[in-house]
């Protein structure tokens, strides 16, 4: 019985690598990737908060890292990931109601989400830059 089951050639669902990438598919993957990246990005938030709670001396070290080009790059990427994942979540809420499931709506909302995520990330940082009087 067990031997027979091993020998049966069952059809397999197509593997990921044979699909030609579609934009909606890439956005779906990006939703998961940004989610996972945010998971580990939050270590920075915990580190920053605990350093602030530890006092001005230790905080100045962390602040120096945040102000460095690497720190700024991570912060910018983190902001984009957060906005992208949030907009992706809003798209899921729309789908939860049963709306926007047709092919055209999927394509349009995928592009709208991607473009808004980039535009909003820049808007947030440009607004932040002026708010801080060009501090960072």
């Amino acid at each position: 019985m067990a031997d027979n089951r091993m020998n049966v050639e069952r059809p397999l669902s197509p593997h990921l690598q044979i699909y030609s990438p579609m934009f909606t598919m890439i956005m779906s993957v990006m939703h998961r990737v940004t989610g996972a990246a945010l998971y580990f990005g939050t270590i920075l938030l915990a580190w920053w908060l605990i350093s602030a709670a530890s006092g001005a001396h230790y905080f100045s070290y962390v602040n120096a890292f945040v102000g460095s080009w690497l720190g700024r790059l991570i912060l910018f990427g983190y902001t984009w990931a957060l906005i992208h994942h949030m907009l992706g979540g809003v798209r899921h809420f729309i789908w939860d109601t049963g709306a926007m499931f047709d092919k055209k709506a999927l394509e349009v909302s995928a592009w709208a989400m991607f473009i808004s995520s980039v535009v909003l990330t820049w808007a947030v940082w440009i607004a932040g830059y002026f708010m801080m009087g060009g501090r960072l």
Binding site: F59, N63, L75
Partner: peptide, 10 residues
């Protein structure tokens, strides 16, 4: 985040 990025401890 954008308000406090690079802000001093105080």
């Amino acid at each position: 985040l954008v308000t406090l990025a690079g802000a001093d401890h105080a």
